[in-house]
Design a protein around this nucleic acid. Structure first.
Lengths: 239, 239
DNA sequence: CGTTACGTTGATAGGAATCAATGAGGGTGG
DNA sequence: CCACCCTCATTGATTCCTATCAACGTAACG
């Protein structure tokens, strides 16, 4: 590891008591004593670079993870052995629930950019702070609701699906305290199409249409600026 | 309450130590002492009849529930204030995770037939058996995987979606130890279409096509017999 | 035994996939 | 530093699948 990388790693390898996740961290709401005990329960930060895998489908379940910064995609192999994109994770979200039920991961996680990820050892965590499981259940619940929501957005037109995707990302960036009117997709048109169940061409057409209508601007092919978030919401709800 | 109904209720209001859920029950794997303590943690069986609601969307979260027998559907209201069907629950499955994250339910649960449902008081349960949360997390994880799976099956043709739906039900009946080659849908063609993101007509055509191909038989309009489960799986994987 | 809701079947139209070709960006090596 | 390449994105033309519209059949209910 280079010195620069090593320094970066050390910088990111902070204790729970001053983790950048803030309100989003699982232990949020605990007292200082509990938080201090957390430092033994999690192995702190891993640093992943674009293309790196956090875990691979069918690998034995080891840990849950909290995404501290960056973004990753969650994929699964379909019958034809090609990738289906199940979604993306943004900072503050918990990764790894897909491995709990069966004891091995049902999906793979791949970094879309440089990302720092906090590993959570469930057993140690539960021993340290028994009440933490409730918080974890809430995160799982959120994942279920989100996934259900994706299922139901499959029931609308291509353009609405694209708008829903953009608004979902914006909302989740907002929830994490990030700038939410301007962000990178980190996904190609093909990957977006795969996720939204649309062809890459249809995704492209949909995005360019929103651009022509001045609702969004493309700062680059994968970076969006939302000009009229209410306009987008309006398109989503009515016509 | 009528005497007959009262008797039925009492009959169903059994203790955890002889609950019919068996292996599927959350406390499975606990020792007898723990199981006995469970009797205070759950309020045992509720009996719902077809059309009855277990809970309504946006109601405050109160409990998780285990479905002991029968079947229910989980629905949410879309922008147009009509019902979107998110799925059905079968015996052995846990209901209510949609309410945990936000503190109020995101969906409604409606019985599709006479169903008995075990209420789980989370706080009491956790106090009685601290390690139970892990089991709950596994159930939540299963729900996430299932939901993800539904998302990805949205990416295929109408016929495959219908086959996937049938096979999913069969597999879940099998997992619960039920007969799985012959069962009721409990959903109308419209409801199936809503769930699968297909029109009722397309659902009907798909089902009749499978019937013509002898892969299934319709014992009545809502009762199916699977004649060739491998044939169905084959259709799902390749052409 | 009629009423009513649901299911089936056929004909048509529309939206997105696919096929095809061009354009743009990013990286590499000369 | 520039030209080339290679991948991704865009745009257009066509095809195909499924929604929709329409009509008829069928089962459950009072």
């Amino acid at each position: 590891m280079s010195t620069a990388a090593n320094n970066l790693f050390r910088e990111l390898s902070i204790s729970c008591s001053n983790c950048s996740l803030g309100d989003l961290c699982i232990p949020h709401g605990l007292n200082q004593q509990d938080i201090d005990r957390l430092d033994d329960s999690v192995s702190h930060t891993k640093l992943l670079y674009s293309g790196d895998l956090l875990y691979r489908q069918s690998a034995p379940f080891e840990s849950l993870y909290a995404l501290k910064s960056g973004s990753v995609k969650i994929t699964t192999l379909n019958q034809e052995a090609s990738e289906d994109i199940m979604g993306v994770y943004l900072p503050g979200e918990i990764i790894g629930f897909d491995g709990l039920a069966e004891g091995h991961y049902q999906c793979s996680i791949e970094a879309l950019e440089t990302s720092s990820i906090c590993e959570i050892n469930l057993d140690k965590l539960q021993a340290a702070i028994p009440t933490i499981y409730k918080q974890l259940l809430k995160h799982a619940s959120k994942a279920i609701n989100n996934s259900n929501h994706n299922t139901s957005t499959g029931k609308v037109s291509a353009e609405k699906r694209i708008i829903a995707f953009i608004l979902d990302l914006a909302e989740r960036y907002r929830a994490s305290g990030y700038i939410f009117t301007e962000f990178n997709f980190f996904l190609s048109r093909s990957e977006m199409g795969n996720f939204l169940n649309l062809s890459p061409e249809t995704v492209s057409r949909g995005i360019r249409k929103l651009e022509r209508e001045q609702l969004i601007s493309l700062q680059s092919r994968r970076r969006i600026k939302i000009n009229d978030i209410d306009g987008l919401k309006k398109l989503l709800s009515h016509p």
